[in-house]
Design a protein around this nucleic acid. Structure first.
Lengths: 228, 228, 228, 228
DNA sequence: GATGAATGAGAATTCATTCAT
DNA sequence: CATGAATGAATTCTCATTCAT
């Protein structure tokens, strides 16, 4: 799931105790921390570049420049461009997964729950790095099956499972009347996905109020709200 | 100092013999016809390659090989790789636009109308070149604004306008009860789009019955059908 | 996925062993020194090739081969072929300019002065790289206005100014009787230029004794020497 | 001396009598004439292009376009680019040679004679195609020995012989006092050559009054004119 | 560990030349 | 004869990857 942690990374973790008798000014972390920071900088920079240009058109040179490291340094952290890309997606997606798993405090109506989750999701996605990441995966998926696989396994299937659970809860509570919806939790997600893609492609032609669209869509599922 | 009969040339020479017994009226292919065929072959090949690899990773060499022409021939038809890509999208999209415009024979219920259209759309899109084209545009759009623009202008805006018209008709006829839906025809389209993208990314993990999902989604909008 | 020790790299590694018994003080060539040597090698090689074939017909590949570096290395030093050519001319011309500026120790007769200068000039130019450079500039000047400009500014205008000064000195001292000559210092130079061009074009048909021709020309200006 | 006249040219000259009984509206010339015109157009166009861009950088496509013929037509008249260039120079130079040979109507003083000839030469050369041709030969000579050879044989050696004859006449008549000048007729020509080259390289920096410079130079040889 | 100069395979593009029409 | 579409060798330039310092 996580890839082989790179020779270098391992070495880093293992060795590099300050030589005995050497001044240990910067407490403990020193080397290891700096390395970690570098790695983070590379990941961050790479993500920006990959999103902006796609895999093939991204130059390691630019990543290095943006990350403030030398080109060679990248190879201390990643085997090559391809595995960098694959690891990258993993690294960036993990926190998303965490949030997905740390599900909802099941209070209030199912609609409010979903509206809250989806609203939050949209806020995080629209016009954000994260939203672009989705587009990146759509774009490069076919050439990086392992990325598509990972994304499906970690994000899509889990997300859909959560949605399905919520839908079933809604049905059980009588909030949702259409039983068959549980078969296609994708329908619940679809407008949000569309909104994300819309932003990066057509925002300048026709801005889209994703939150409002979400509400309309939920009205479809839960029935229109009484504005009372 | 150059030249040699070339596999392609040979093949062409061979294939152009009219089948025995066939009328030899038109002196085989006129020069213009030949050129047109070549061009079509290039377009076809290029589309395959671009879809399979994305813009940057596609080699003109491969396009040429697949189209059965020499590399240089491509440059007789297209200025360079970029404009080839841009023109390509236009060329392939135009027939789609035509079909969009030649819209509905307004018979029967709005639901049947939409189900017919969307069903046809899905059948044409899923697992087809055309579906992949959508993914390609999503993937390359940000780096080819002119492509995104064109697609928005010719396909998206028109398609949405049609959908909006249908929704309004549905509302007027009392088939659709949620007026606000007319504000977001995207919602009508969303599941179909999702299905298209799903196919090219996740089909092997979890096949998706797009037609069935469409029905469920329409049930959401029009109310569930009595199975009577 | 790349690499291989490369003839050049091997050669370099071999040649850099300090000769046995040689002082090994300076740790061979520092990185900077190496780079400078490489650059010099490229400049040298490029000059040879450009002179031999002209700008358009020169292949970067050949320059690289002759310089003993990889093709890509050239691009670490020069933006592209054109700017390489332009910089090259500058680089090669600068020392010439220096010598032009470090004028003459004004001893003896003006004629002797000029004969000394021009003789030296001819010795340096005829059958030398430097002479060919002049031809190269004549050849490529129209397509490289910046080169022609540079050459005019740095060499031609300065050279003519020096000549004019000498002519005026000659007039003042009564060695030159034709005042109008100061208007056209080009006349002083002309035979030398002709000689330079002659060498590279017609030497094998009819060798030209440039030094002797120069003497005859100076006789024209200063009056024939008494052979006493 | 002249190259093989090209299969096509020969054929053209030989055959193409109008078919008997055919209307001979456009008298005699018809085919042959048109071909000759074409050829002339190609020569003219090629000369323009070669002068403007040099041999290597000139595209046959551009020559064809400028000449108003198809690219293939060029190959009916010339074997390939190289021999086209070589023949071209010959073709353009021949009339020059003719004029050189049809030399002097030996009237008046030698100085007037030379001033007339050189003046005419300058008028024809400066800022003209013909002047640029000289530069072209200087530029491409080393890569086209046959061109340099031809030019030397037909133009340079003859021109110098003429000059030498004139100088000797001048010496015999007492107009020229420096006997050694006859050894280097190049000196007589040098300023004119310089002027020609100057025009195409430095004219925009510093215009040069070639005729005036010529006069000053002749004053050097013949003594200053009394303005009486 | 870091660096970045060097490498050279690879890709886009050009253009002289051919040849079917 | 003329044409110009087609060819593909040749050339420039890029960039992932390596490795000496």
């Amino acid at each position: 799931m996580r890839k082989k942690p790179t020779r270098a990374a391992v070495a880093k973790a293992a060795s590099n105790e300050p030589a005995p008798g050497e001044a240990v000014t910067a407490p403990a972390s020193s080397r290891a921390t700096r390395a970690a920071k570098r790695r983070a900088a590379i990941v961050e920079a790479a993500m920006e570049e990959f999103i902006a240009r796609g895999f093939a058109a991204t130059r390691l040179d630019d990543i290095a420049k943006r990350a403030g490291v030398a080109k060679g340094t990248i190879y201390l952290h990643f085997k090559d461009k391809e595995s960098m890309f694959e690891e990258l997606v993993r690294i960036v997606i993990v926190p998303v997964v965490a949030r997905l798993t740390a599900l909802p405090p099941p209070t209030g109506s199912v609609r409010d729950l979903i509206e809250g989750i989806a609203g939050h999701f949209l806020k995080e996605m629209i016009g954000t790095r994260r939203g672009d990441l989705v587009r990146l995966i759509v774009a490069e998926g076919p050439r990086f099956p392992s990325v598509a696989d990972f994304y499906y396994r970690e994000v899509v299937s889990r997300g859909l499972a959560s949605m399905r659970a919520l839908i079933e809860l809604g049905i059980a509570r009588g909030e949702i009347h259409q039983n068959s919806l549980a078969r296609y939790p994708q329908i619940l997600i679809a407008p949000a996905m569309i909104a994300v893609i819309w932003q990066s492609l057509f925002a300048r032609h026709a801005p889209l109020d994703a939150q409002d669209m979400l509400r309309v869509h939920l009205d479809l599922i839960f029935g229109e709200r009484r504005t009372t």
